[in-house]
Structure formats: C-alpha cells, structure tokens
C-alpha cells in the first residue's frame, strides 16, 4: 500500500501537538497542586499517566513506519526526526510531572512543611518555558525559543537558592530532613524539566533551520 507521506506527517504532527497540550495541562496542574500541597489533585496526576505513554508509543511506531516505508528526505526527514525526538522529550516531561506529584502527595499527607516560595516560583518559570516552547513548535518559529534563555537562567539560579535553603533547613531542623529532601527533589525535577524544554527548543531550530545546536546557544 503506498504511503501518503504528507498526510501521515500531518497526522503525527497533530498527535504530537495534542500530546504536548496534554502534558502542558498536567504540568500546570501539578505545579498548582504543589503550591497548595493538594493531595487529591496530585493523586489524579500520578494515576493519569497511561494515556500519555500510549500516545508516545503510537507516535513512535508511526514515525518508524514512515521512515521505513516512505524513505523521506530533506525537510520531511527532519520533520520525522524532530517528531521522534520531541515525542521522547515530552514523555519525559510527563514522567517528571508524575514524579513531582508523588512527592507532593507525600508532603501533603505529612503536612510537616510548606513548599517554599522559591520552588513555587521555579514551577511558574518552568511552566512558562514549556508553554513557550510548545508555541514555538506549533508555529515552527525558532525566534520564540530565544526568550527561553533568560528563563532558564532564572530557573538555574533558583535551583541554587533552593539547595542553599535545603542546607540551612537540614541543619536547623534535622527532624524535617526527609520532607526537605522531598522539596529538593521537586526542585531538581523542575530544573530537569526546564532542561528538557531547552532540548525541545533545539529540536525546533533543527526542524526549521536544519542546524544542530546541541550543547550550545540557540
């Protein structure tokens, strides 16, 4: 059966954007749940991961099938490679959201400490970065990715501040160490999320301009 490359590319792109929207929603929910230590909301996110996994597998299978059957070149090849890569990155973001949800459930159940404003701010930045990069992907506009650099720098700076906070807190209240480490884990996941967002931004540059910009400025 001949493959209509154009229609199928449109299809995987559609599925990728839909998955992006779903993951963005999850991230927004988990960050809101984190700020309020809302256990019920976090539990919903922890349990609702399977549809994203299913979407990821489906997109990957379709991409591999297209690579094998249609043997795309140039722009089409780049499009499929980008979808494959971004697909994996988005799924990892969903995993991070799930990880954060688990810690939020624990912190919310114990009710020992509140999430420090530093981490809430990190969450807000990470969320904005994700939203920007998904817009860049939808519009295929690498220029939008350039706004990410200052945000990522802020996230990094906040992460360092969180580490300092953790150090102080553990010395002051050794009995709260386990909860404080949960907060640190959340901060690390958020920082990782921001990292993945910049990877996606690089993929968008590759898609549109055909340049590889890994490990360098965009």
């Amino acid at each position: 059966m001949p493959v209509d490359l154009h229609a199928e590319l449109l299809q995987v792109r559609r599925e990728l954007l839909a998955m992006g929207a779903l993951v963005e929603e999850r991230v927004a929910e988990v960050i809101a749940a984190m700020a309020k230590l809302d256990v019920a909301a976090a539990a919903r996110i922890r349990d609702g991961d399977s549809d994203i996994d299913r979407m990821e597998v489906q997109i990957e299978q379709e991409c591999i099938r297209l690579l094998a059957l249609a043997q795309p070149v140039a722009g089409d090849l780049r499009a499929i490679l980008t979808v494959l890569r971004v697909n994996g990155e988005i799924e990892r973001i969903a995993d991070l959201a799930k990880g954060i949800a688990k810690r939020v459930i624990r912190l919310g159940t114990e009710q020992l400490i509140e999430i420090p404003p530093l981490v809430v701010e990190m969450g807000g930045h990470a969320r904005r970065m994700l939203s920007e990069v998904l817009s860049a992907l939808a519009d295929q506009d690498p220029a939008r990715c350039r706004d990410l650099t200052p945000l990522e720098e802020q996230v990094d700076a906040l992460q360092k501040a969180v580490v300092r906070w953790v150090r102080d807190e553990v010395t002051r209240h050794p009995d709260l160490a386990s909860a404080v480490i949960d907060v640190l884990t959340i901060a690390q996941r958020l920082e990782r999320l921001a990292d993945i967002v910049t990877n996606i931004a690089e993929d968008v540059v590759f898609l549109v301009e055909g340049r590889l910009v890994r490990h360098g400025g965009i």
């Binding site: 449109l10 792109r13 954007l17 839909a18 929207a21 779903l22 963005e24 998904l134 939808a138 519009d139």
Partner: peptide, 13 residues
C-alpha cells in the same frame, strides 16, 4: 494550519 497548532488545549483535542 492544524487546529492543534493554533489552540493548545487537551480537552479540545
């Protein structure tokens, strides 16, 4: 343009 490109909303998709 794809609707998914212009509106990012999981429930809508």
């Amino acid at each position: 343009r794809l609707l998914q490109e212009i509106v990012r909303s999981a429930p809508l998709h």
